[in-house]
Design a protein around this nucleic acid. Sequence first.
DNA 1: ACTATTTGACCCCA
DNA 2: TGGGGTCAAATAGT
Length: 322
Amino acid sequence: MESESSLEKQELKKELVQGMEVARKLKAELGLESSAQNRDLLVERILSSYDKALLILRWNGSVSKSHTLQQPQSPLPNKQELKHTSQKRKLMPKLVNRVKVNSENGFEGSHEDGYSWRKYGQKNILGNKYPRSYYRCTFRNTKDCWATKQVQRSEDDHNIFDITYKGSHTCSKGKKNAAMPAESPEMQEKPQESQTNFQNMLTVATANLGNEETACSFTSPLTSFGFRTQENQNFLPSVLENDPFSGSLFQTHLLSPNTPESNYFPSPFCANELEGTYSNPCLEFKVPEIISAHTSTTNSPIFDFDFSVDPNFRFNASRFSR
DNA sequence: ACTATTTGACCCCA
DNA sequence: TGGGGTCAAATAGT
């Protein structure tokens, strides 16, 4: 689609500009007595922006196709129709995030991504000692929103969660208020933390949906996070609107002491240009202390995030080196 | 009463 | 045929 192409360009432009902004910030930081963590953070943000920009370039055109495949035409309340859902499900674009969350402070992460999710199942998965949880959009019935996600805690590192998003949100109105995403139980349990800060250092290790580890290393949710320092300074206020990918993907969240599987973060992703699906970028968060993340989403579930960052958080830079 | 979660059962597909 | 995904009744929480 042409409009989408144009949106992608905008997106690209924003990412490049953002990268530049952060680079400037970093430059300024270098002249100060700022913490190594802050510098790491800025570096990662820069890398994130450029990664995303490259991703957009690579993606180019593969998105719109999948858009048309993912949404069932009608709400399907009867069982006959339900029988077809699995087939439709197969056509849905899929994204996998690997999220690493530090739970030292008693909470882990949550799926606060600006959307409202309802858990509809949990299953033990072969080869993984942790169960997989299944979530669907709360507004499936009311707004015909068919987005779903799965959360699987990694067996190797219980702080890592693989989050798989399927389908897209059509419930723009159903999205949680970015400023107060209170619908998720996780957030309700940790209201305070959720408002203060969270550190969003993450790498996107690409899980391979294909095979090769396409390098998608993002530092932060490649979205338009409004990054905040402790002083609430937005140093990256850009908002990616009209995100071209929004039609088919996701976003994530953070903190959720509730279910062990529910720790999420915003999701970067890679597009698998073949088949119009999305390869699974994995986010690996090095987050000693996650306090809050919420998203201000419009129709861009993927990129509209607003992260608050605790400047004191520690960032393990080694996680980002490959 | 309403909404969310849990969990056993069912169904589809590889 | 078994694993994974979803349904839906039971249960819990507000």
